[in-house]
Design a protein around this nucleic acid. Sequence first.
DNA 1: TGAGGCTATGTCGTACCGCGATATAGTGGT
DNA 2: ACCACTATATCGCGGTACGACATAGCCTCA
Lengths: 112, 112
Amino acid sequence: MFSKQLIAASLQPIVLTILSRGEAYGYDIMQRALDLSDGKLVWTAGTLYPLMHRLETKGFISAIWRPSEAGPRRKYYRITAKGRSVLESDKSEWLSVHSILIKLWGPELAIG
Amino acid sequence: MFSKQLIAASLQPIVLTILSRGEAYGYDIMQRALDLSDGKLVWTAGTLYPLMHRLETKGFISAIWRPSEAGPRRKYYRITAKGRSVLESDKSEWLSVHSILIKLWGPELAIG
DNA sequence: TGAGGCTATGTCGTACCGCGATATAGTGGT
DNA sequence: ACCACTATATCGCGGTACGACATAGCCTCA
């Protein structure tokens, strides 16, 4: 679907944004990303869980184990204050690069 | 400046877009990217030249050596038909991911 | 003459990361 | 009993940004 690089660039902002709306567990986050992208953001467990661990190690999110009503226990994540600040800078970086691309893809005079 | 991942996601589209306007050599491409990003896209030689070699190997660009009027000889690159087609799909992938992010971040950011 | 700076291209090593493969385990349907 | 879905975890491979280093031509200033 999307290139490895594009996935890499959008993974963290998407996960942090989802968590900024409230706590969620890994598998749920995968499903939500799949839904809101019309099936285009196909993450696998080998992609998501290592990312969640990295985000936790860096202090961007925190985790709590909770039993499920039906099925295996779940690890619920919450975004931290540090995570929110990182999300804001991720947003601004993305929008900055986007504006450069739009400028490039616009009229021919975009390049000196 | 920008995260490694964002750089990785935008490098190829930016280089291919610049070359879609006409031939250019590596060092020139670095300078142009620096200019049109107001100094934010700071690529180094260790980033750019291996990329150019990869793009050439993949058949997205082709190269011709030419002497410089003053200074070392230059390797001029041109985008190929395959490269143009890759650029189009890069564009559409980027815009697709962008629209997902904008949707996530809310309509107020879509205006700016 | 020569030292430093800019242009111009190249390679190597390190660190990081997406992702397929694999493992483990609880629950529910046929 | 078997399969599918849920849920988390780890390992290894391949790809890649980037700092460090190497090479070389040209120009300016002392």
